[in-house]
Amino acid sequence: MHFGQSLIDALSLGALYALVALGIGLVFGVMRLANFAHGEIITGAAYALIFTWHLGPVVSVFVSLLVGVVLAILMELLVFRRLRTTTPATLLIASFGLSFLLQRVYEALFGTNVRTAPVASGLAGTVTVLGLRLQILSLVTIALTAVLLLAVHYFLTRTNLGLQVRAASTDFRTARLLGVRADRVIMLTFGISGGLAAVVAFVMTVQTGAVGPTFGVPLTVLALVGAVIGGIDRVIGSLVGGFLMGFASSFFSSWLPEGIVRFRDAFVFLLVILVLLVKPAGLLAGSGTVERT
């Protein structure tokens, strides 16, 4: 495989993982919740795409976004709001349980087999640029990620609500004392994270065309782990960690020798454990503690 091609592939997978990690990292900032169940938001939004694609792309994408946002907000309202005062470890167990629960719900509703639909199949082709055969989807993913990152950056740094989100992430208690409405900020953050999950679901569904009950799991596990090694208490840390995770696994897939490539995830996780040993709080950790004070 050509190096330039695998570079673009790695960039696009890194971008995708960065989007997942960004959704997880934003929620972690305000909640101290590392949400395992983020993957089930992706799965839900992907099912929505598959089932509504025959209604036309605009309607389908809209429904999918709606499903993502509503699922995320429901998680907060029904489960995580009631656990807000517990430790990050308890929240992690709760989200682990919620992830298991939602997978079983999807199984009961849609069966264990994958459901398929030719979602945006036009994007699955390739184009030749400067002698490189590139997947259109890779380019779209990179562009989409760039736009979303700019949008989230603008929101966080240039709007009043974004300022409140950042304040709540930095010091939740003081932010509340200064008049930041906790419930509203947390719900908004979950909503944004749900929207980001829906975008990820779109890219993944175009790529595979098939959605099963555990569709979002592998992506979420790697991105969550990436966010933690990047430094989950800062948005930039999650983002970079997620990107590195996607980039590394794509590169391992292309360049590891034939007999070893099956052990790719084992290599990735060994790397993760090593990073956590050297920098337990993450590569780009902030000065704040991980536990909520």
Binding site: A34, P88, A89, L92, L224, V228, L276, A281
Partner: peptide, 10 residues
């Protein structure tokens, strides 16, 4: 805490 959870999951 969280890091232990992730590393043991790894």
């Amino acid at each position: 805490g969280l890091q232990a959870g992730i590393a043991t999951f790894g």
